[in-house]
Simulated assay, not measured.
Amino acid sequence: MEELLELKTLLTQGNVSDALVLVEEMTEMSKDDKINKISSYAKILLLHLIKRQVEKRTTRSWDLSIENSVDEIQKTNRRRKAGGTYLSSEELREALMDSYRIALAKASAEAFEGRYSSKELAQMIDFDRLITDALDLIKTY
């Protein structure tokens, strides 16, 4: 809110160059917020996709969590008025890849009743397929 008031002041003073700098900063802040929110849901999505992949089974709870995470990622990424998305497919891929380590750590505590370390569980995962499956779900739902 503070930034909007500053922007209004800059514009009323005719200081367009500083106003444009502030608009750029606000745009970056907004995108960072979107990335953080998407990353939070990406961790949950990957957690359940990892468990599904390594345990070769699923549960209704996992399926609902996957569906909810995908829905929230899509909702957060959708530009409502301008159309399109905030993050491109490549940026979504990066967000998923950045979220993998945390999702893997959580999955190692849950999959197979916590018998495997993150490193051991990672050896059971087809990483490329995992990321592709996550992206496909995000694009499809």
Score class of each variant (00 low, 15 high):
Glu113Ile: 04
Arg115Ile: 14
Arg52Leu: 06
Asp128Cys: 00
Met29Cys: 11
Thr76Trp: 02
Lys31Glu: 08
Asn77Ile: 01
Ala109Arg: 15
Ser65Phe: 00
Glu72Lys: 15
Glu91Arg: 06
His48Thr: 01
Met26Asn: 00
Val54Asp: 01
Glu25Ser: 09
Arg57Pro: 01
Ala19Val: 03
Ser89Leu: 14
Asn15Ile: 11
Glu24Val: 01
His48Gly: 02
Glu113Gln: 08
Ile73Pro: 10
Arg60Ile: 14
Thr140Asn: 15
Phe112Val: 02
Phe127Tyr: 15
Lys119Asn: 08
Gln74Asn: 13
Tyr141Asp: 12
Ala107Arg: 08
Gly14Met: 05
Lys56Met: 05
Ala95Gln: 02
Lys56His: 09
Ser88Lys: 00
Asp136Ser: 15
Arg93Thr: 10
Glu94Gln: 15
Asn36Arg: 12
Lys37Met: 09
His48Met: 00
Arg79Trp: 03
Lys106Phe: 13
Ser30Leu: 11
Ser39Glu: 14
Gln123Asn: 14
Lys43Trp: 04
Leu46Glu: 00
Arg93Asn: 08
Ala134Pro: 07
Gln74Asp: 07
Asp128Lys: 10
Glu113Gly: 01
Ser61Asn: 08
His48Trp: 04
Glu110Tyr: 11
Tyr100Asp: 01
Ile35Ala: 01
Leu49Cys: 08
Met26Leu: 06
Arg93Gly: 06
Leu45Trp: 00
Lys51Ile: 15
Val54Glu: 05
Ala134Tyr: 07
Thr85Glu: 14
Ile102Thr: 15
Leu137Val: 08
Ser88Asn: 05
Met124Ala: 14
Asn36Tyr: 08
Val54Met: 02
Arg57Trp: 01
Val23Met: 11
Gln123Gly: 13
Ser65Val: 04
Glu28Asp: 12
Trp62Glu: 07
Gln74Ala: 09
Lys75Pro: 05
Lys56Gln: 13
Asp63Ile: 07
Asn15Ser: 08
Ile102Phe: 14
Trp62Val: 02
Arg115Gln: 13
Tyr86Glu: 09
Asn68Asp: 12
His48Pro: 03
Leu135Cys: 05
Gly83Val: 02
Arg115Phe: 11
Ala103Asp: 06
Ala19Trp: 06
Ala82His: 09
Ser108Leu: 03
Ala107Phe: 08
Leu96Lys: 12
Ile44Asn: 07
Glu24Leu: 05
Val54His: 00
Gln13Cys: 09
Ile66Leu: 07
Gly84Gln: 06
Thr76Val: 05
Asn36Asp: 11
Glu91Lys: 07
Ile44Ser: 13
